[in-house]
Amino acid sequence: MNHGRTQHTSSTLLNGKVLDVGGEGMTPGMNNTELYDPATGIWTTTGDLHVSQLGHTASVLLNGKVLITGGLRHHHETNTAELYDPSTETWTLTANMSHGRYYHAATVLTNGQVLVTGGDDAGPPNTAELYDPSTETWRMTGRMNYERVSHTASLLTNGKVLVTGGEDARVGPLNTSELYDPSTNMWTTDSSMHFGRFFHTASVLINGNVLVAGGVSDEYHIANTAEFYNPSTENYMPIDKTKNLPSS
Rank of each mutant, 00 (worst) to 15 (best):
N224C: 08
P28D: 05
T40S: 14
V66I: 12
S11Q: 07
S98R: 11
D181K: 12
H3W: 10
L156F: 09
V114S: 03
N244W: 12
R73W: 14
R170C: 00
V18K: 06
G119F: 02
K160Y: 01
A202P: 02
V116W: 01
T69R: 10
T46E: 10
K241H: 06
G41E: 12
H200F: 03
T78A: 10
R143Y: 15
V216N: 15
T46C: 08
G208C: 13
G142D: 07
H50V: 02
Q113I: 00
V21P: 08
E227P: 05
V66H: 08
T46F: 06
T57M: 02
T57I: 06
R101M: 02
T27Q: 15
T117S: 10
S11K: 03
T46H: 09
N126Q: 07
N235Q: 15
D20E: 14
A153L: 03
N185R: 14
M144Q: 12
G25K: 04
V171I: 13
G196K: 04
W91Q: 06
H221G: 09
V171G: 01
I42M: 13
S191I: 00
N15R: 08
N15D: 15
T94H: 13
N96D: 15
L245Y: 02
S192Y: 03
I42H: 14
V216F: 07
T117A: 09
G22N: 03
M1K: 10
N31H: 13
E34D: 05
T110I: 12
S192H: 12
N244G: 01
G47C: 05
V204A: 13
T90E: 12
T141F: 07
G215D: 04
H194A: 00
G166P: 10
A223S: 15
K241D: 01
S248R: 12
S177E: 01
S217W: 10
V216K: 14
F195A: 07
M97P: 04
K17A: 01
L49R: 07
D37V: 07
V18T: 05
S203G: 04
T137H: 14
S191E: 02
D120S: 11
P125T: 07
P173M: 07
P125Y: 10
V66Y: 09
K160T: 13
S134G: 14
M26A: 11
N235D: 13
G23S: 02
D37T: 13
A213L: 10
L162H: 04
L155S: 00
E89C: 01
Q7T: 11
S154M: 01
G196W: 01
G123N: 14
G4Y: 09
K241G: 00
T94P: 08
T27P: 00
N158R: 13
T45C: 07
Y236N: 01
L162T: 02
E77D: 06
V216Q: 14
D132G: 06
T117F: 10
N79S: 09
D168P: 05
W187Q: 05
R139S: 04
L93K: 15
T40D: 07
R170E: 15
L35A: 05
N2A: 04
S10K: 13
R101T: 03
N175P: 05
L155N: 02
T27G: 05
G112Q: 04
L49H: 11
A106Y: 01
A81N: 02
D218R: 14
T40E: 08
I68A: 02
T188V: 15
L54W: 11
